[in-house]
Nucleic acid binder design. Structure first.
Lengths: 231, 231
DNA sequence: TGCCGCATCAATGCATACAATCCGGCATAC
DNA sequence: GTATGCCGGATTGTATGCATTGATGCGGCA
């Protein structure tokens, strides 16, 4: 389905700054840092076993990606301001509706069959999969649609949004295990039926978008983060 | 209308890397560098009168913003690959349609009056304004709508897209001086009339989106760039 | 006891130094 | 004449050193 994409922190022959960027992105997604936390460059450089120069290059990239903030002095982890998280989810809805619409126009039967097969596999392993794994499958479904849209810019934007909402999405997944998969199936069926409007509507309803749901997920996210940090 | 926003390269009390970032962004928008050109760090650092360390931090940010590329060895300026430019414009259409729809729901009469007044001013100075100025006014109109959408993430994404298509948009503006302004007026009228569908349709038709138009603009862009470089 | 000033320290931002790698030219061999 | 291998310069990537600045803790004073 997609053979490309970087294996995150796998390849050992990258420059230090690229490795640091990949590792930090991973750690940020996994909430190794607390929301609002200040980044200490020396300690972080020691952990990553690099010097501050390539570390700072990685941090600067993460700032541009919205995964870190650039405070007056130094870097910090974004908080979970509800307005921002809400905007992120709203932006995601719009991007995904656009990509699914384009995918309706562009995707051929072979690609849709492949996506269907992917959903079958996903569902079979779904009951006892970890949340991490569920999120991975979830992201892959949506990313495949973005790929089928043929627009690399939108796909990249979606990837970035996925990174920035990762935590909230993670905690929200718990109560949505089954719904998620069946909704994916419905969306795909609409695409295959050529019913663009229904596919878009399905997508819009599928993504967390009601303010109260998001707020609740944010609260749960705080709980999750501080549980992790004390562990 | 919008009192915020950084004045780009104005404030002298920023860090070197921030200044460099602002200056380079400006220079990239103004096509000081050729498409595909490789960046020489020492010469650029000398020009900006800073050392390579903060320069590289700025370059890394620009890479994350899509304004530069990260080649095997060093940085380079993105080319004008038609597929990418087309994707950028397509993404812009989708974002702008989303923001105008949200603005229809959120914007109050006062804000729309202000936007209308802005259009009046723009039109009065339009006939003899420079292309730079026209682009500035154009961007401001669209950015204001994004602001009225209430979604800062989408607004930021639009700003980034504007940066990345700046050149092509610039050259395309020549043949569209009058059309642009009247279309802006139409879009605003639809918003004020509460006709969301018409506003979206107007926006969609307003933004460069036909492949042949974009291709032609890219060609003109090449001409413009190489004219600049020889001057 | 509470508050202010000062000194000490830690952390950032930047410049410089160093190492590794690549590119080009040139000579030499076939 | 072409291919090949080597050398020197140029350029990137990283580490280290230094200055500045904000934070912190402590002692004196009201």
């Amino acid at each position: 389905m997609n053979k490309d994409k970087k294996p995150a922190a796998a390849t050992p022959h990258m420059s230090s700054s690229h490795r640091a960027h990949a590792q930090l992105r991973e750690q940020l997604l996994r909430s190794k840092f607390l929301p609002g936390q200040k980044i200490n460059e020396v300690s972080l450089a020691n952990e990553l076993e690099i010097s501050r120069t390539p570390l700072r290059e990685a941090l600067n990239r993460l700032v541009a990606e919205g995964l870190l903030l650039d405070r007056e002095r130094g870097f910090s982890v974004p908080g979970l301001e509800p307005e921002v998280v809400f905007d992120l989810f709203q932006a995601r809805v719009e991007i995904e509706c656009a990509t699914v619409r384009m995918a309706c126009e562009l995707a051929g039967p072979a690609e849709l069959d492949a996506l269907s097969a992917f959903l079958d596999e996903s569902m079979s392993e779904s009951p006892d999969a970890s949340v991490d794994r569920l999120i991975e499958l979830d992201i892959r479904f949506h990313d495949t649609i973005a790929e089928l849209s043929g627009n690399k810019v939108l796909r990249q934007m979606l990837s970035n949004l996925n990174d920035r909402i990762h935590l909230v999405r993670w905690v929200a997944m718990e109560g949505r295990r089954e719904r998620t998969q069946s909704q994916h199936r419905e969306i795909l069926d609409h695409i295959r039926a050529g019913d663009t409007a229904a596919a878009i509507a399905g997508m819009r309803g599928h993504i967390l978008h009601r303010k109260e749901d998001i707020l609740q997920a944010i609260k749960a996210a705080y709980g999750h983060v501080y549980t992790l940090s004390s562990a």
